[in-house]
Write a protein that binds this DNA or RNA. Structure first.
Lengths: 144, 144
DNA sequence: CTTTTTGCAAAGCGTTTGCATTGAA
DNA sequence: TTCAATGCAAACGCTTTGCAAAAAG
C-alpha cells in the first residue's frame, strides 16, 4: 500500500476513534498502522511483535483489548479462523476467503458475483442479516 | 426424527465405520446416536452429557477424539463457531447457517440458491475447492 | 493374541479479567 | 484533575497429548 494511502487511512481511523470516544494513544496508532502494513490476516501475537519494534513495552493485553474494541466499534474487521487464534484485517473493500484445510493458509479473493448475493426471503423475514460470510475450503496448490 | 430413520442412519454409520477401519464400540454408537437425537449443533460437552445418561463412565476425551475422527473420516459434519467450543452435526442434507451475533444462536436454513453457487474461475484454477461455507450473520428477532 | 480404543491426568494455547499505575484530554 | 488506557499477572475455557489398562476383532 502507498504511504499516502496509509496516512489517509490513519487519519480517518483517528477521526473514527474520537467519534467513538476512544482516546488517541501511541499504542493504538501503532496497532492500527501495523495492521495496515500487514498484507495478510495477522493474529494478535503477530501485531504485538510488529508493534514492539516501535514500542517495546506494549503488552499483549493492550493489543488484545484494542483490537477487540476496534472490531466492536466497526473500525476494523475480524477473521475467524476456527482452531487458530483470532485474526484481524483493516476494512478495505469487500472480499472473501479461501482456506486451505491442510496448511491453514487464508487467501483473499474478490468476486462481484459473491458480493451481490441476496438473502433468502424467509430468512429476511425472521432475521436482520448484516453480513454474508463466504469461505471456500479446500486444498491449495502447494499442499496438493 | 423418526425412530426408523435413526436406526437406518445408525446402521449406515456402522457400515462406514467398518469401511474406515474404526472398531464398533458402545461409546461410538452412543456418541453417534446422541448426535442424531440432538436437533441443534451440540458441543462436545453436550454430547458427553447425553452419552453419560447411558454410559456413565465415558470420558470427555473419548467423545472428543471420536467426534474429531468421525469428522475427519467424513462421517459427520463440524460447525465452527468462533469463540465457542467446536460443534457437530450429522450429515443430513445440504444447508447453511444464520448466526445471531448477540445471543450466539445458530440456525439452520435451506436454500437451493446457495446450494448451487459456483466457484469463481480464478479460484478454481489455483485451488481445489471442496466446500462452500455460507454463514449469514446478524441479529435474531428475540435479540432485536 | 494383536491392535485399537478408552479413561485419566496433565499440559498447551489462546483468551479474558482484576487491579494498581500511567497518561490523554 | 479526571477518567480511560496500559501493563502485569493470574485465571479461564476448550483443546490436545502421553500413557497404562481395557476391550474389539
Amino acid at each position: 500500500m502507498r504511504k499516502e494511502r496509509i496516512d489517509e487511512l490513519t487519519t480517518e481511523f483517528m477521526r473514527k476513534c474520537r467519534k467513538s470516544g476512544y482516546r488517541i494513544t501511541p499504542q493504538r496508532m501503532a496497532i492500527y498502522r501495523e495492521l495496515l502494513k500487514d498484507e495478510g490476516h495477522p493474529s494478535i501475537d503477530e501485531i504485538l511483535a510488529a508493534v514492539r519494534n516501535f514500542l517495546p513495552n506494549v503488552s499483549f493485553d493492550t493489543v488484545y483489548r484494542n483490537l477487540i474494541s476496534f472490531f466492536e466499534a466497526g473500525l476494523i474487521d475480524s477473521v475467524e479462523v476456527y482452531g487458530g487464534p483470532r485474526r484481524f484485517e483493516p476494512i478495505l473493500d469487500p472480499h472473501h476467503h479461501f482456506r486451505c484445510t491442510v496448511c491453514g493458509r487464508l487467501v483473499d479473493f474478490h468476486s462481484f458475483y459473491y458480493d451481490s448475493l441476496s438473502v433468502p426471503d424467509e430468512i429476511k423475514r425472521e432475521f436482520n442479516v448484516e453480513k454474508i460470510r463466504i469461505t471456500l475450503e479446500g486444498v491449495c496448490k502447494s499442499c496438493k
